[in-house]
């Protein structure tokens, strides 16, 4: 049976892992490859690299990073953050990433989703959706969550799935950073409306939160700070999940 996935996210700027709140006070907190290796040794199923800062030499820095990660770890990883050029996406896959994700660019140019998935494979094409609950619905936000498009997030999920997306990375802006649990209603709504895998993101504080996301139907659940700060390892979370009847790779 397919195992539920525990996924670690790493924020990257200039090829380094960074920590910061809302893009403020960003601090260097290490080498992404070292951290990724630690995660692999702790039983992580997958790693997502989010490049948060567009800099002039970013293309080269990112491609060097992807190559290094690919040569050092042998579990799947996804790369995204500001991608808008099909050749860049192909080159990221070519250099060793398994999947790319796009967010704002997909909203602005939905017609590219089909082109990307034709070129690199649907399963390798992840659409990230940042959703914010307000006025009775989940709304799609772009530009790092700063612009509310007013679009219905669930409808958008259905649309991108029909256009060729292979997976959705769904972040709740309401719960992100709170460590008080994933946005269960958002996850459940999305899972019930699309037939592609859904990764829950935003709000993980402990093992019970992962259980909640999986019980709501998520295929994977993603966290950053609890892993980064060493509060829990993937194995800690998985042991708890197994005790509660969730199929995990242990």
């Amino acid at each position: 049976m397919l195992a539920k996935r525990i996924i670690a996210a790493l924020d990257i700027a200039g090829g380094r892992v960074v920590k910061g709140v809302n893009f403020q006070n960003i601090q260097d907190s290490g080498d992404p490859v070292d951290l990724a290796k630690r995660y692999v040794s702790e039983g992580m199923d997958e790693i997502v690299f989010l490049d948060i800062m567009a800099t002039a030499d970013r293309r080269k820095i990112l491609s060097d990073l992807v190559k290094r990660v690919a040569s050092e770890i042998s579990i799947p990883f996804t790369v995204g953050g500001g991608l808008s050029d099909l050749d860049d996406m192909v080159s990221i896959i070519r250099n060793g990433a398994d999947k790319i994700f796009i967010n704002t660019y997909a909203v602005k140019h939905p017609e590219v989703i089909g082109k990307i998935s034709d070129r690199i494979g649907s399963a390798n094409t992840v659409i990230a959706i940042d959703a914010m609950y307000s006025n009775g619905k989940y709304r799609v936000c772009i530009n790092g969550g700063s612009i509310d498009t007013g679009m219905d997030a669930i409808e958008w999920g259905k649309t991108v799935a029909s256009l060729g997306a292979g997976e959705l990375l769904v972040t709740s802006i309401n719960t992100d950073g709170t460590m008080s649990g994933f946005d269960i209603n958002l996850i459940r709504d999305m899972v019930e409306n699309v037939d592609i895998p859904v990764i829950a993101s935003g709000g993980a504080g402990g093992p019970g939160d992962f259980l909640g996301a999986f019980n709501a139907g998520a295929d994977g659940a993603l966290a950053a700070s609890i892993f980064h700060r060493g509060i829990y390892s993937a194995v800690d979370i998985k042991k708890y999940l197994r005790e509660h009847g969730i199929n995990v790779r242990l």
């Binding site: 049976m1 397919l2 292979g166 895998p197 295929d219």
Partner: peptide, 10 residues
């Protein structure tokens, strides 16, 4: 089933 069979399986 979900048409992308993605993840770790036995």
């Amino acid at each position: 089933v979900k048409t992308t069979h993605m993840g770790w399986n036995q």
